[in-house]
Design a protein around this nucleic acid. Structure first.
Length: 424
RNA sequence: GGAGAGGUGGCUGAGUGGUUGAAAGCGGCGGUCUCGAAAACCGUUGUAGGGGCAACUCUAUCGAGGGUUCGAAUCCCUCCUUCUCCGCCA
C-alpha cells in the first residue's frame, strides 16, 4: 500500500503518477479527505484519554485514602463514553481508508517509460538467434504428443482444461530444469527455501494480491486459505512483521513451487498446451534490501534470470514495461520473453519487479537504520521479486527450438547431467 | 476430531483490577577502569501513531479482536497459536 503520508503531504504528485498509470484518482482524493478527519478524531480521542488516565490516577489515590470519589467517577464515565464514540468513528474511517488504499497501485519510478498499453513497452535487449528449420517445425503440443512426454488430454481428464501432465522424459526434463535453475540461483547468492503453497488471507494481503486480484486466486473457503499464484507470496511473508538489522541486508531467497492461477476472464485466449495454464512450476527469486540499493538489485536480478536462458541457449528478449502496463505492486518492471518458433511470437517467461516499500508496508517488513547521533530508526525494506524462471513457456520455447528433423528433441548441454539423456 | 495446559519486552522469567512500558536475570549499546582485553561498576536499551523547528511530549501496545469497569497484562467472550495425552491417518 502507498504511504498515507505521501498522499497527505504530496497529493498532487501522487495523482500525477497515478494518471501515468492510467489510474483513476478519486480514491486517493477520498483518502486525502478521510485522513484529515482521521487525524482530527485521533487528536480529540487522545486528548480525552490523557484526561481519563490522569483522573483515574487521582481516583486511585482517593480510594487508597478512603476518600469518596464518586463525582470524579461519574465525570469519567461520560468521558469514557465519548472516547468510545470517537474510537468507533475512527475505526470506521480507518477501515474505509484501508479499503480504498487496497486498490491503489504503487507509483511508477521516474525512469519508467511512459505509455498506455503493452504496445508502449520498450525492448531493451535481445539475445540469441531464431533457428532456421528445413522442415515445418511442430508446436510444443505436437512434439509432446509425438514423443509421449506431454499429455494435455489426460491432464484435462484429471483436472479440467488448463493443466499439464508430464510423462517419462518430459517429467525428467522438467525436474532437470527446476534443479538446474535452483542450483544456478543458489550460486547467485539466493538461499533456497521450500515454502507452503497454501497461505492465509493475511499473507495474500501482505503481498498485495488480495483484495484486488481475489478473482484470479484459488481459494479454499472451508479453511480460508489461498493457493499461491507465485512463491513470491510465501517467501515475502517469511519476514512479515520482522525487523532486519541493516548489516544483514540484502536478504535473498529462491524457491521452487507450483503456482496456481484461475486465469479468470481469459477463457478462449492462448488455450493451447502450456500457453496459459492454471498450474505451473516456477523458481522464484525474492530480495529484501535497503531502499538505496533496490534499483541496482533489480538490474542484478534481471541478469540472474537472463543467465538461465543464456546457459540454456534460449532466444529471448527483455522488455521494460511502460507506466500503463506495470504490475499493481511494482514501481518498475522488466519482462523476459522467450521465442516460440511454432507460434511465431514472444511468450512471457519471467517478470522482474521492484515493489519498493509497497508490500513491505503492508507486511511490516522493516530494518533498523542507524542515523547520526547514534540513534536508530526503523524503515521499510524494499522488496523485489523475479521469476528465475517459470518452466511452462520455457518448455515451449525449448522443445520447439531444439526439435530435429527426425521429430526428436535435443536436450540443452547444461541439462544433460541432470536428465541423464541428451535426446528425447 | 476429543481432553487438558499455556501464549508477557531480543531471550529467560515475575506479576490476578489502581504510578506496571511492565520486577529480576541474560543479551545489545555507551561509559568508567586498562597499554589493550576480560572482569567489575555506572548508564542506556521495544514498536507504532499524534503534536512540536527542536529539546520534548501525549496516545496505543503484555497472541488477535471485542466486552465489563472511572481504571484491565490482570475479569468475561470469540478467534489464532504452542505444548501434553487420547483417537485417526501416514
Amino acid at each position: 500500500m502507498l504511504d498515507i503520508r505521501i498522499i497527505r503531504e504530496n497529493l498532487n504528485a501522487v495523482k500525477e503518477k497515478l494518471i501515468l498509470r492510467g489510474e483513476k484518482i478519486d480514491a486517493v482524493e477520498k483518502v486525502f479527505e478521510s485522513d484529515k478527519q482521521r487525524l482530527e478524531l485521533i487528536k480529540r480521542s487522545e486528548k480525552l484519554k490523557e484526561l481519563r488516565n490522569s483522573v483515574s490516577e487521582e481516583i486511585a489515590k482517593l480510594k487508597r485514602e478512603k476518600i469518596n470519589a464518586d463525582e470524579k467517577i461519574s465525570e469519567m464515565k461520560k468521558v469514557s463514553d465519548e472516547i468510545k464514540m470517537l474510537d468507533d468513528n475512527l475505526r470506521v474511517i480507518d477501515t474505509e481508508i484501508n479499503d480504498l488504499l487496497s486498490y491503489v497501485p504503487n507509483l511508477p519510478h521516474e525512469s519508467v517509460p511512459l505509455g498506455k498499453t503493452q504496445d508502449d513497452n520498450v525492448e531493451v535487449k535481445q539475445w540469441g538467434d531464431r533457428k532456421e528449420f528445413s522442415f515445418k517445425p511442430k508446436d510444443h503440443v505436437e512434439i509432446g504428443k509425438h514423443l509421449d512426454i506431454l499429455d494435455f488430454e489426460r491432464a484435462t481428464k484429471i483436472s479440467g482444461s488448463g493443466f499439464a501432465l508430464y510423462k517419462g522424459k518430459g517429467a525428467r526434463l522438467e525436474r532437470a530444469l527446476i534443479n538446474f535453475m535452483l542450483d544456478e540461483q543458489g550460486k547467485n547468492g539466493y538461499r533456497e527455501v521450500i515454502t507452503p503453497v497454501l497461505v492465509t488471507r493475511e499473507s495474500m494481503q501482505a503481498a498485495e494480491k488480495v483484495p484486488k486480484f481475489e478473482e484470479d486466486m484459488y481459494y479454499m473457503e472451508k479453511d480460508d486459505l489461498f493457493a499461491i499464484p507465485t512463491a513470491e507470496v510465501s517467501i515475502l511473508n517469511i519476514h512479515r512483521d520482522e525487523i532486519f538489522k541493516a548489516e544483514e541486508l540484502p536478504v535473498k531467497y529462491c524457491g521452487f513451487t507450483n503456482c496456481f492461477r484461475r486465469e479468470a476472464g481469459s477463457y478462449g485466449k492462448d488455450t493451447k498446451g502450456f500457453l496459459r495454464v492454471h498450474q505451473f512450476n516456477k523458481v522464484e527469486l525474492i530480495t529484501f534490501c535497503e531502499p538505496e540499493t533496490s534499483y541496482d538489485e533489480l538490474q542484478r536480478m534481471l541478469l540472474h534470470a537472463c543467465g538461465i536462458l543464456e546457459k540454456l541457449n534460449v532466444h529471448y528478449r527483455v522488455i521494460e514495461l511502460c507506466t500503463g502496463d506495470i504490475g499493481f505492486a511494482a514501481s518498475k518492471c522488466y519482462d523476459i520473453e522467450v521465442w516460440s518458433h511454432a507460434e511465431n511470437k514472444w511468450l512471457e517467461a519471467s517478470s522482474v519487479s521492484n515493489c519498493t516499500d509497497f508490500q513491505s508496508r503492508r507486511a511490516l517488513a522493516r530494518y533498523r537504520k542507524s542515523t547520526e547521533g547514534g540513534k536508530s530508526k526503523t524503515e521499510f525494506v524494499h522488496i523485489l521479486n523475479g521469476s528465475g524462471l517459470a518452466t511452462s513457456r520455457l518448455m515451449v520455447a525449448m522443445l520447439e527450438a531444439n526439435q530435429t528433423d527426425t521429430g526428436n528433441v535435443n536436450v540443452p548441454e547444461v541439462l544433460r547431467s541432470y536428465t541423464g539423456f541428451d535426446l528425447i
